[in-house]
Amino acid sequence: MAHTLLNLDSPEVTRYFQLLEYLSSLLEKDNHEYRPILNGERYLTETELSKLLKVTQRTLIEHRNNGKLPYYKFGGRILYKENDIIQILEKNRMEAFKTD
């Protein structure tokens, strides 16, 4: 049985390093989007929530100041509990009109 010597120029080694680079980039992307859970709850920043709801940060500030949006203030940072936002959306859900 003949043995093949592998080196850095071998197609198998090149492919191996390409796959490692690809997996590394996927993990890096996930790392940026990962939201850790604290006591079973996820918290969103103002920027994240405004992107999700497709509203300006100024609109979030107005809702917060009007008492429509619960929030947490930690240092100078504002956080919103994901489940609070989901409950508000569900509570304000409007049924579609039926046309028969």
Rank of each mutant, 00 (worst) to 15 (best):
M94F: 09
N66I: 05
L38Q: 00
E28Q: 12
T56K: 11
T4V: 08
L69T: 07
L49A: 03
E21D: 10
L8S: 09
L52Y: 08
Y22G: 12
E41Q: 08
L60G: 07
E28W: 01
G76V: 09
S50Q: 04
A96G: 10
Y43M: 02
N92M: 06
E62L: 14
E48C: 02
G40Q: 05
P70D: 02
L6H: 13
F97Q: 12
K98H: 12
R42T: 09
L20I: 13
N65Q: 15
E95K: 15
L49D: 01
S24R: 12
E48N: 01
P36D: 01
L38A: 00
L89E: 05
R42Q: 09
L60C: 05
E33G: 02
L19N: 14
I86E: 08
V13C: 11
E90Y: 03
R77D: 00
K68D: 03
Y16H: 14
T4K: 09
L52S: 07
I86V: 14
Y71H: 13
M1Y: 02
L49N: 04
L19R: 15
L27V: 08
F74Q: 09
P70G: 00
V55S: 08
M1E: 05
V13E: 14
R64V: 09
I86Y: 12
I37Y: 00
L20R: 13
E12A: 15
Y34H: 09
T99L: 11
N66T: 13
L60M: 06
L8V: 04
Q87R: 14
I85T: 04
S25I: 11
S24T: 09
T59F: 12
R42M: 09
M94N: 08
K91T: 09
T47Q: 09
Y43E: 03
Q87G: 04
M94C: 07
L60T: 07
Y80I: 02
E48D: 07
Y43D: 05
I61P: 02
T45Q: 05
Y16G: 10
S24P: 03
G76I: 10
R42A: 10
I88A: 03
A2T: 08
E41I: 00
D9L: 13
N66V: 06
L53I: 04
T47N: 05
I78A: 03
E90K: 14
M1V: 04
Y22M: 15
G76A: 13
N66Q: 15
L26K: 11
E33H: 07
K51R: 12
V13Y: 14
S10Y: 13
E41M: 00
M1F: 03
G76P: 06
P36V: 01
F97C: 04
R77Y: 03
K81W: 00
N83Q: 12
H32S: 04
L26A: 10
K51D: 10
L69G: 08
E12T: 14
S10E: 09
A96E: 12
D100A: 15
L6T: 04
K91Q: 08
V55K: 12
E48I: 00
D9W: 12
L20H: 06
F74M: 11
L8A: 08
K91H: 07
R35F: 06
K54R: 10
E28M: 04
